[in-house]
Design a protein around this nucleic acid. Structure first.
Lengths: 229, 229
DNA sequence: ACCTGAACACCGTTCAAGT
DNA sequence: ACCTGAACACCGTTCAAGT
């Protein structure tokens, strides 16, 4: 509209490509339309650039996806230690979940970057340290640390298997079909399932769901801890 | 070789396509080369047939993948109930893990077919029933049942993020690099992590790993159960 | 009923070339 | 240093046609 055709180096249209700019746009795309929408070509047009331009900043698509996982880990706020192993283990798990929660589509990518990223290493250090404090030997401690990671993924992934790129009506419609399907089962054969038709479909309180997941994890660790008494 | 050019309806070469034959070949392919090797075109050549031939038996690739999940659930041996809720919950989880274990690549597909498949419904019924017996309200019972499913996935998936289509040497090489990377971290900053370098990389006893996962899940449920005293 | 053939709109990626 | 253009070998899928 204005007369400035040769304004500042970069107008608003294209904000100078970089690893971060590309990764952020990809995260946005994944959040809105799902991870399968994140293709090299789609991302390029989204950024107003040729597909090959992205290959200057990332060697392969795999490296790009790793960048998405890193972007989530960047947002982790690593908690301070208090000395109470159970409490510290819990807050570490909560911190991971908090970071992953806005980006459920990227959960699996985060898992793969855990030991490559400073924040991921910090959380792992806390997990292994607290588990060692609880009396676990190296092998079970490692297993339980990995299980914490998978628990976080399970929780943020939720049961909404893939509601990405789905309107509110479509999701409702899908939920209605699910309850209807469960309710139509023979009650003699599936009494509990039929009775839980609503609970299995609608997550009434998401925060409670997350808390329950964390509680369960910690309770399980406490129940197995050699030094829990 | 023999003179029979018009022998039986189908020689050995092509064993008459069907949903099951296609699905089984796809499962085989996924086990050996990974799920990403399962493409319509690759599967078709594998079966000595045109890509479009598969579309007679499956409407879309999505339906084909669902078929793979079903194939795994077919192999589930649904356990009998004993009346002891904790024991029954455990054997149900163990049964699911046993079926998924030979096909780690298909774990996520199994999750999506859980309520569509008779065996999946049976296991879910057991989980919800035992959790209700333990005193859990519908919402937490549903959450914990879902968590059991995700626990099974976490365990069979393991830490071998993707060792599909990988020779033994390649895997060893990768593991060596992983321990080396962890050990090269500053021990002041990551004492526990460095100390667990081996345990985090090599899974010395896979069975113990699975047992620990199941133990943890059950311990967590017991720790939270309203009726557990 | 079951499968083929040609075509379409997509992928990730290489390689040589532009500025 | 950063990006374009053309090309290659792959995808899933539609649609009309063969037997």
């Amino acid at each position: 509209m204005s007369a400035k055709t040769k304004a500042a180096t970069r107008p608003v249209a294209r904000p100078a490509l970089s690893r971060e700019v590309v990764a952020d746009r990809a995260v946005e795309l994944a959040d809105i339309e799902g991870l399968e929408a994140v293709t090299v070509r789609r991302l390029a047009t989204e950024l107003g650039v040729t597909p090959m331009a992205l290959y200057w900043h990332f060697r392969t698509k795999e490296e790009l996806l790793a960048g998405l996982g890193d972007r989530v880990l960047d947002s982790v706020r690593v908690p301070e230690a208090t000395g109470d192993w159970a409490a510290d283990l819990r807050t570490a798990l909560v911190a991971l979940i908090a970071a992953m929660r806005p980006h459920p589509q990227l959960a699996d990518l985060v898992a793969e970057r855990m030991l490559q990223h400073p924040h991921g290493r910090d959380l792992t250090e806390i997990a292994l340290g607290t588990l060692a404090d609880a009396g676990f030997a190296p092998a079970p401690a490692s297993y339980l640390a990995m299980l914490a990671l998978r628990t976080a993924i399970a929780l943020v992934t939720g049961d909404q298997v893939d509601d990405s790129g789905m309107t509110a009506e479509e999701r409702e419609e899908q939920q209605r079909r699910k309850t209807a399907m469960i309710r139509s089962l023979p009650p003699k054969q599936y009494p509990a399932l039929v009775a839980h038709a609503d609970a299995m479909t609608y997550c009434s309180d998401v925060d409670m769901f997350f808390e329950l997941g964390v509680d369960h994890y910690i309770a399980g660790v406490k129940g197995m801890a050699p030094l829990s008494r």
